[in-house]
Simulated assay, not measured.
Amino acid sequence: MAPTDAVEVIEVNGEPATRATLRVPALSGYGHFTAMQVRGGRVRGLELHLARLDSATRELFGAGLAGERVRELLRHALREVADASARVYVHWPEGEEDARVMVTVRPPSVKDGRPHGLMSVPFAREVPHIKHLGGFAQTYHLLRAERAGFDEALLTAPGGLVTEGAITNIAFWDGTHVVWPDAPSLLGITMALLEPRLPSVRRPVTLAGLSSYASAFITNSQGIAPVGRIDDVEFTVDAELMGTVAAAYEAVEWDVI
């Protein structure tokens, strides 16, 4: 973790976290979350974040989570902070009438724009369409990749099918289209914002077929970065492509929380 990952604020249902309210997140890995960058009290893709939280709450707990409640809790946690990295965690302890929402606030973070190296690993997330808790294996593989001199782990399903990064989505450039792997994975908010704004297609991508792509890039809540290599396959950093992707991302409006 980077030094800026220090938590500045933790609130549960709008109140400062206590030992009692932290007991559930400390002892239960059953829940979900979303992560966002806040600038001037605004967030890119806010409605997508709210829809993600509501949908996952319905699937995991059988009832929804009102977007206005989430916005109110975010505003409260961010009341003294204009720029931040914020996360919204959702648990629903047995016997409680409504979901328990925890908001954490850290200093803002931006993805390093240098070329990133990815190490492929044979692992695919369970229930990949939900941004769920309990990412032990993702962290394990990410740390292994970093110790081996890489920046990120690339998760692969049987047959070398590329799915997603440990904490990112990945896209490839075939000279005409931005190719997003057609495989079970989490639809990241940054990916969801970029896909319709770029000449995108989805199709299966395998480790064996990586050399057919000239360039690649990764995305997450911190932004976008080019891929320099995956294992021993080198990729060209296409300045024109990255400029197009960056321009598409910058064109996304910031939504008031």
Score class of each variant (00 low, 15 high):
residue 152 E to M: 13
residue 152 E to G: 03
residue 154 L to C: 04
residue 157 A to T: 09
residue 157 A to V: 06
residue 160 G to S: 03
residue 161 L to W: 06
residue 161 L to P: 01
residue 162 V to M: 01
residue 162 V to S: 06
residue 164 E to H: 13
residue 168 T to R: 01
residue 168 T to K: 05
residue 169 N to D: 03
residue 170 I to R: 12
residue 170 I to G: 09
residue 171 A to I: 12
residue 174 D to K: 07
residue 175 G to S: 08
residue 176 T to S: 15
residue 176 T to H: 15
residue 179 V to G: 03
residue 179 V to P: 00
residue 179 V to Y: 06
residue 181 P to I: 06
residue 181 P to M: 01
residue 181 P to F: 04
residue 183 A to I: 11
residue 183 A to M: 12
residue 183 A to E: 11
residue 184 P to A: 15
residue 185 S to A: 15
residue 185 S to M: 12
residue 186 L to V: 14
residue 186 L to M: 13
residue 187 L to T: 12
residue 187 L to H: 10
residue 187 L to A: 13
residue 188 G to I: 03
residue 190 T to I: 03
residue 192 A to Y: 01
residue 195 E to T: 08
residue 197 R to K: 07
residue 197 R to H: 11
residue 198 L to K: 11
residue 198 L to I: 02
residue 199 P to M: 05
residue 200 S to D: 06
residue 201 V to H: 12
residue 201 V to M: 09
residue 202 R to G: 00
residue 203 R to T: 12
residue 203 R to Y: 03
residue 204 P to C: 05
residue 204 P to T: 05
residue 205 V to D: 00
residue 211 S to F: 10
residue 211 S to D: 12
residue 211 S to N: 06
residue 212 S to Q: 15
residue 213 Y to C: 10
residue 213 Y to L: 12
residue 215 S to Y: 04
residue 216 A to F: 01
residue 216 A to Y: 04
residue 217 F to D: 07
residue 218 I to D: 06
residue 218 I to P: 01
residue 219 T to F: 02
residue 219 T to G: 03
residue 223 G to Y: 11
residue 224 I to F: 07
residue 226 P to D: 13
residue 226 P to F: 03
residue 229 R to L: 08
residue 232 D to Q: 15
residue 233 V to Q: 07
residue 236 T to S: 13
residue 236 T to E: 15
residue 237 V to Y: 01
residue 238 D to L: 12
residue 240 E to F: 00
residue 240 E to V: 10
residue 242 M to G: 01
residue 243 G to W: 03
residue 246 A to W: 03
residue 246 A to V: 06
residue 247 A to L: 13
residue 248 A to G: 02
residue 249 Y to L: 09
residue 250 E to Q: 14
residue 251 A to Q: 02
residue 252 V to M: 00
